[in-house]
């Protein structure tokens, strides 16, 4: 499975939801797609799922344009916060309906998940709580086993134990049936351990695409005497600065060489890793502040 996005733009009226976005997904990994509200995540994912056509640029999946391409569309499952207020059918019937059009759908696995998430088989879906409806979306996404599976914040309505159950199932099923999975989320700190690779978009632009481990190693928090810290970070990209008295803590973005680390320690500075959550917050905040 290969997804190539090239100079992709999407405009709604006067609003440019995506601006010249280019990236490639080329292996069976779990990709974390991060972005603030309105950053363009859903717009991007809905183009992958052929819900929309891009205004300009291109997207190819396995070398083919997905829009109105029957064999490609079957391989892309896009799960989002769907409103089931008019769905009077029961969960099993809805799953059977999906199974008819999803070539890799595993009904046994779906039934196992229905039991695991404790969905009521006799209740019409419109009477499900928000959390139960989210669980149904998650079950459809997992059991479809589509080579490109996209979860666009479907888990937001689920409570913490259910989300945890989903993460475990996701990792296990991905191990047994590898595919490209995109998880779009706000719950960065909770989900970061799932990501093999991270994509951040901000205000319609691709900010970065990087392996999770390498990205995390680029962020660091330098704490110590204010003057020494200022001197040490002067050539670095600063993400955040906090100061209390003469003690300063600066979050930086960029690789720290071995020599730099040794110098920092020698100067009495403390170097602490930062989480993806902090990195995401500071990176997207920085752009906002710069534009002001």
């Amino acid at each position: 499975m290969n997804v190539k996005v090239n100079s992709l733009s999407l405009t709604y009226g006067n609003h440019r939801a995506l601006k010249d976005v280019t990236f490639e997904l080329d292996s069976y990994k779990i990709y974390g797609l991060l972005g603030r509200n309105g950053a363009g995540k859903t717009s991007l994912l809905s183009i992958m799922a052929s819900f929309h056509e891009p205004t300009s640029g291109s997207i190819t999946i396995n070398g083919e344009v997905p829009f109105e391409n029957a064999s490609i569309m079957q391989q892309v499952a896009f799960m989002y916060n769907k409103d089931y207020k008019d769905e009077s059918d029961h969960a099993i019937n809805v799953l059977k309906g999906v199974a008819r059009y999803r070539p890799y759908f595993d009904m046994k696995y779906a039934e196992y998940l229905v039991k695991r998430f404790k969905l009521d088989k006799k209740k019409p879906i419109k009477q499900f709580s928000k959390g139960m409806q989210s669980a149904l979306n998650v079950i459809i996404g997992l059991a479809s086993r589509a080579p490109l599976t996209i979860f666009d914040e479907v888990y937001l309505g689920m409570d913490a134990p259910s989300r945890d159950m989903f993460y475990k199932e996701l990792l296990e099923d991905q191990q047994n049936h590898p595919r490209v999975i995109i998880l779009s989320t706000h719950l960065v700190s909770e989900m970061d351990y799932l990501f093999d690779e991270v994509i951040i978009i901000d205000e319609g632009n691709l900010m970065l695409q990087e392996e999770y481990d390498s990205l995390i190693s680029k962020g660091a928090k330098i704490t110590g005497n204010a003057e020494i810290v200022d001197d040490f970070v002067q050539s670095k990209q600063l993400l955040n600065v906090e100061q209390l008295g003469n003690t300063k803590a600066v979050t930086i973005y960029g690789e720290l060489s071995k020599t730099e680390r040794t110098i920092a320690v020698d100067k009495g500075l403390e170097i602490a890793p930062i989480s993806l959550h902090e990195l995401f917050v500071h990176l997207t905040k920085e752009v906002e502040d710069n534009e002001k």
């Binding site: 052929s50 109105e68 499952a77 896009f78 769907k82």
Partner: peptide, 11 residues
Amino acid sequence: HYVENGVTRKD
């Protein structure tokens, strides 16, 4: 419903 389940508009 159909596009969501990977069916083309033509089908």
